[in-house]
Structures are given as structure tokens and as C-alpha cells.
């Protein structure tokens, strides 16, 4: 039971549907109009019903002005970390610092292999992710002396020129559920990005998982608060009386405030392709949640 004290932010999780191609772009614009802080897209490149997530993100970046943009989460096995580092830094420069980097170790290995990607065991994938983050941060670190050398088992870089430097320190959020990934998150990530629907016991699972992240962070000499806790959500606005995220915007705000205060969640990302829902989330749920958390924290 920890509140890490982070400022709250609110985002959307928009389906990067391929047809019609402008539909997710419109939903990103709707997210910005709703006052949300972030728009994010899942990344399943083997799925032809979806657009390429990075292309869509870059396109959306040019159409928006204020909102942050993230993969949720990018499929590392099909995206070379060196290219990803340069792409993310490029987009961050183009947007004046509006990029978050959400990455995952990979799921759906059949799809990855079908696209010509390397099939890894879960353990290998965790290590590959750790090496990838090293490559990515190393390429961003243009103030470090000399070219980058990473001698990994899965990703090696021999004397690459660093850069480009991102416009701000791009946070790396990791999608993690299992102990090894949670420990990796605690050691190296700036944020933890699970989906509520995948938590075995719902919000109650957060305690034990937070604990693993906190322990790994401490063991690596980091403050647990260095890892912000984010959460993908889905729900439905109703006239009230339902369960978790099945009520009025007021009900939602109370439930999210509870997640913030009890479990330290500070980034709430709603999966929705409905502009009206995004609008309620941004304009009603977000301010009320902030108020509730604020008053509780100062109490």
C-alpha cells in the first residue's frame, strides 16, 4: 500500500485500426481535445488489421500540438533498438519533447516469427529487453564520451555514433506481469505499464507486483518512486451502480483516486475508440480524480 506521490496524468489507448486509415488519427485529435495528457497505441505488427504503430505515432505527432504520444507497448522483437532509439529521439525533437517510450519484451511469438522475427523464450526476451534499453539509452546519451559499445547476447553495438539526442529525457515504460519482467522494470524502467484486464486479481494484484518492483529498484540503488506506475483501463460509463469502472464519471473518479492512493498508480490510460468516452474521461473523470487525490494527500 504505497502512494508514490506522483502527479496524476490521464491518457487514451486507441486502436490503430488500418481501415479507414484516418480513424485513429481522428481519435488522437479527440484525445487532445478531451484534455488528455497522452495518446497511446498498441503495437502488433503481425496483425494486418492494424497500421504500423510507429508510423501512425509520427503522423499523429504532426497533427497534434500538446498531447504526449506513446506506444503501448512497442513490440521489441520486431523493432531494432538502434532504429527505435533514433526514431524516438527524432520524434521527440520534432515534437519538442512529447514522446514516451512504452516497450514490451514481445508476446505472440508465432506472429513475430511469421514476420521474420527471432523467436525467444520468455527468459531470453527479458534479457533482450534489458540489452535493448541499454542500447537505446546509450544512443541517446550524446554527452557521453566516445561511440557506443554494447556487447549483448541479443543486441550488440560496436562503436556506433551516438545521437540524435532527444529533446527531453524520454521515459521508458515497460509492460510487465511476471517476476523477471517486474524485477527488470524495478531495475531500469521509468514506468511500469500493465493493463488492468491482465492482472490476475484485478487491482488487488498491484500490491504484490509493486512490491517486487520496489525491491528490485532498491536493490539496484534506486528509489521505488523512480518507477512511476501506470495502468491501462477499460470500462463503461453508466448511470451508476455497476462495479469497477462501470458507473458515472463521479464513480470512476473515486475508484481511480483509490487506485492512486492505495496502489500508487499515477498514469491512467483508457482504452476507448469512442470520442464521447474520451471526452468524459478527460473533462470529468480526470479533474475530479485529481481533486480527490489532492485533498487526500494534503489531508
Amino acid at each position: 500500500m504505497t502512494d508514490y506521490g506522483h502527479d496524476l496524468w490521464f491518457g487514451s489507448f486507441v486502436t490503430p485500426a488500418a481501415r479507414p486509415p484516418q480513424a485513429p488519427v481522428e481519435l488522437a485529435l479527440a484525445s487532445e481535445r478531451a484534455g488528455l495528457d497522452l495518446v497511446s497505441f498498441q503495437d502488433h505488427p503481425y496483425q494486418s488489421a492494424f497500421q504500423d504503430t510507429w508510423t501512425l505515432m509520427s503522423y499523429v505527432a504532426a497533427r497534434t500540438e500538446r498531447i504526449r504520444i506513446s506506444g503501448n507497448v512497442l513490440s521489441l522483437p520486431l523493432r531494432s533498438p538502434a532504429v527505435l532509439a533514433r526514431a524516438a529521439a527524432s520524434l521527440d525533437r520534432l515534437t519538442g519533447g512529447r514522446v514516451d517510450l512504452g516497450i514490451g519484451a514481445g508476446a505472440f511469438w508465432d506472429g513475430i516469427a511469421a514476420m521474420g522475427g527471432r523467436r525467444l523464450t520468455p527468459g531470453q526476451a527479458v534479457q533482450a529487453l534489458e540489452e535493448a534499453v541499454q542500447v537505446i539509452r546509450g544512443l541517446w546519451a550524446t554527452d557521453e564520451p566516445g561511440p557506443l559499445k554494447v556487447d549483448g547476447e541479443y543486441y550488440s553495438v560496436t562503436g556506433a555514433k551516438r545521437g540524435p539526442a532527444p529533446a527531453h529525457r524520454i521515459p521508458i515504460h515497460i509492460g510487465a506481469y511476471k517476476p523477471r519482467m517486474l524485477r527488470l522494470t524495478g531495475r531500469i524502467a521509468d514506468g511500469w505499464l500493465p493493463s488492468l484486464g491482465y492482472l490476475p486479481d484485478g487491482p488487488a494484484s498491484l500490491d504484490a507486483m509493486n512490491e517486487q518492483i520496489d525491491e528490485a529498484a532498491s536493490a539496484a540503488g534506486r528509489e521505488p518512486a523512480a518507477v512511476s506506475r501506470l495502468l491501462n483501463l477499460s470500462g463503461r460509463f453508466t448511470t451508476g451502480g455497476g462495479g469497477l469502472l462501470q458507473g458515472t464519471p463521479g464513480d470512476w473518479a473515486e475508484q481511480l483516486a483509490d487506485l492512486a492512493l492505495q496502489y500508487g498508480v499515477s498514469g491512467f490510460i483508457l482504452a476507448s475508440d469512442e470520442p464521447a468516452e474520451l471526452d468524459l474521461f478527460g473533462h470529468e473523470v480526470a479533474p475530479r480524480t485529481r481533486e480527490l487525490v489532492q485533498s487526500e494527500r494534503t489531508a
Binding site: 508510423t55 509520427s58 505527432a61 504532426a62 527524432s90 520524434l91 520534432l94 555514433k161
Partner: peptide, 18 residues
Amino acid sequence: TAGADLEPGTVSSWIAAA
């Protein structure tokens, strides 16, 4: 591909939208 060059896919998408 030199360190300071922007990644072409990203730049193309950005310009395409504008």
C-alpha cells in the same frame, strides 16, 4: 545513419501529416 541524422521513417510520417 550518422548519429545526428533523424530517422527517415519518422520524418517522412511527420512531413506527410503536414
